[in-house]
């Protein structure tokens, strides 16, 4: 085992002029570019999945920690204040504030239409803004029970419709991103396998000679494997760097246009760095495995 590792290390670190199978820069350069692009797309897919999950979690967390109570009757300011006090006493409620008529009108104005004096004639909804402890269950039912007991006619909106939509959308985004990632990995492995087979075909004479002087299949496969391991690592490094730059630009654009709706959730996080760090290693390993398999398949044609 140790001698195999030593041999592998000697091969990986040796002077490339002494490589038994000659390198072909005409093939290596375009292949590096193609694998880099695939790796960059894979990284972006991974970052998208991670960012999508994080943003969705932030949004749903915000939505889940807030409720709105629409008081239908009685609707006076005093009734609303009293209802807010009743709600505040419910277990799991952290905040309960009656919304003034003016603020409720402002919410309607936010829809963008200049309603002028018409707004004064409209029955502005009487709202109570409620903050709840995250993860606390039955708060909605307890609020309903308390307000009903106090004789109020009301509707409690716990935003479950929105959180459901956000979670569904986030799941779809993640499925698409992970599918894209898997497709890119398969495409990269197929491309490298094809390239490895082509590389062996163009060096068939050298492979034959190595065989005839006693090289095992594993030795010849390792020669090919090490070349593609290096290529995969370099391509992975380039792809991850490119993806990192694109993601940074995207994150900056996202942050620049951030609003209350996005809760200021960052698109990129330091924890996402692992995707970019692991990408060159994964690409290198995938390249090596694909090249090894392709080489062994090709070598089966020889005696």
């Amino acid at each position: 085992m140790i001698s195999a590792l030593q041999s592998f290390w000697r091969q990986i670190t040796r002077d490339s002029d002494r490589a038994l199978l000659p390198a072909d820069s005409r093939q290596a350069r375009p292949l590096t570019i193609v694998v880099s692009i695939m790796c960059a797309l894979g990284c972006l897919a991974g970052l998208s999945a991670s960012a999508g999950l994080r943003v969705a979690n932030t949004w749903t967390s915000d939505l889940k920690s807030a409720m709105s109570v629409v008081v239908q009757s009685p609707r006076t300011d005093a009734d609303l204040t009293r209802a807010a006090q009743i709600v505040r006493r419910v277990q799991g409620v952290t905040r309960s504030e009656a919304m003034s008529r003016e603020r409720a009108k402002d919410l309607l104005r936010n829809y963008g239409t200049d309603m002028g004096s018409t707004l004064d004639a409209l029955p502005v909804p009487r709202l109570i803004e409620v903050g709840v402890t995250a993860g606390q269950t039955n708060v909605k039912a307890d609020i309903e029970k308390a307000l009903k007991a106090a004789g109020y006619s009301f509707v409690v909106d716990d935003h479950s419709r929105f959180t459901g939509e956000v979670l569904r959308t986030s799941t779809v985004v993640r499925i698409v991103a992970i599918s894209a990632l898997v497709a890119l990995v398969i495409a990269a492995i197929s491309t490298i396998g094809f390239a490895a087979r082509a590389a062996l075909e163009t060096r068939r004479e050298a492979v034959n000679i190595l065989h005839l002087v006693g090289a095992k299949d594993s030795f010849v496969a390792r020669e090919v494997q090490i070349r593609f391991l290096r290529l995969g690592f370099v391509a992975g490094l380039l792809g991850a760097t490119a993806a990192g730059v694109i993601a940074l630009i995207g994150s900056a654009v996202f942050a620049f246009g951030a609003s209350d709706f996005t809760s200021g959730a960052p698109l990129l996080n330091w924890t996402d760095l692992w995707i970019l760090l692991v990408a060159p290693l994964v690409t290198a390993c995938a390249s090596a495995v694909a090249a090894d398999r392709a080489a062994r398949e090709t070598l089966r044609d020889l005696v």
């Binding site: 000697r10 038994l20 000659p22 190595l210 002087v213 006693g214 090289a215």
Partner: peptide, 21 residues
């Protein structure tokens, strides 16, 4: 002869040793 054209004389001759690691 079937020598490997990209390898030096030394490395061509050393090939049987190299394939045995």
């Amino acid at each position: 002869f079937r020598l490997l054209p990209h390898l030096s004389v030394f490395d061509n001759v050393a090939m049987p040793f190299r394939v045995r690691d």
